[in-house]
Amino acid sequence: MNWTWFHQLGSPKSFYALTSQWLPWLVTVMVISMTAALVWALLYIPPDYQQGYTTRILVIHVAVAGTSLAFFPLMAVAGTITLVWRIKLADMVARNAATLGAWFSFVTLATGSLWGSVMWGTWWEWTDARLVSMLFQFFLLLAVIALRSAMDDNDKAAKACALLSIVGCINVVIIKYSVEWWNVLHQPNSPVGMSNSGANGPEFWLPTLLMVVAVYLFLTVSLILSTRNEILHRERKAQWVRELLAAS
C-alpha cells in the first residue's frame, strides 16, 4: 500500500496550507451556529415544568460535556500515530488537545455544579457518576500536561505523552464504568431529580444539538489555531516558516 498521501497530510507544511483554506469557512460557520444557538437557548426555550429556566444551563453543559469526551480518544489516536508513524504533526495536535481538554473538563464540572446547586441543592454530589468520572478525566488530562512540562526533550516528551494518552484513554473508560457501578451498588437512594432527562422535548434538544455542533466547531478552530502556532514555533528554522513569518 502506498502511504505517500498519509505522510503528505502529516507534513506540517501541507497541514498549514490546508487549514489556511479551511479556517475562514470553519470560523464563519462556528460564529453563525454559536450565535444562533446562544440566542435560541437564552430567549426561546420555554421553562421546564420541573426545572424552570435552568434548562438553559443544560444546553451549555450537555454540549461541553459531550464534546469533552472526545479528547481522550483524539489524544489516543494522535498518540498511536506519534508512536507508530513518528509523525510530528500528531504530537503538535495532541499537546494542544490536552490543554484544551482540561479546559473542557473544567467547564463541564463548573457548569454541572451550577446546575446541581439548583436542582440537587448542592454544588458537588459524589453520587453522580458522571460528575465523578469527569473529575478523574480532568485529573488524567492534567497528568498528561504535567508529564509534558516535566520533560525537556521534545521528542521524548511526545512519545511519553502519547503512551500516557493511550493508557489514559483506556483508563477513563474503566473509571467511568467502575464509578457507575459503584453508585448503583453503594448509594441506592440517590437524590430526587438526579437525571437531567426531565428536559427532553424538541424545544430543548434542538438548540442543544445546534450548540453541540457549535462547540465541536469551536474545538476544531481552537485546536487548529494552536496547532498552527506549534508548527510555526517548532519549525521556525524551516525556510517556508521563515518566509511566512517575514511576510506577516
Binding site: 435552568t54 438553559r56 451549555i60 457548569t111 439548583v118
Partner: peptide, 11 residues
C-alpha cells in the same frame, strides 16, 4: 425565573 445567578454564571 429566579435562577439568574446560576444561568448567567454558566453563560
Amino acid at each position: 425565573g429566579g435562577y439568574g445567578f446560576n444561568v448567567w454564571s454558566v453563560y
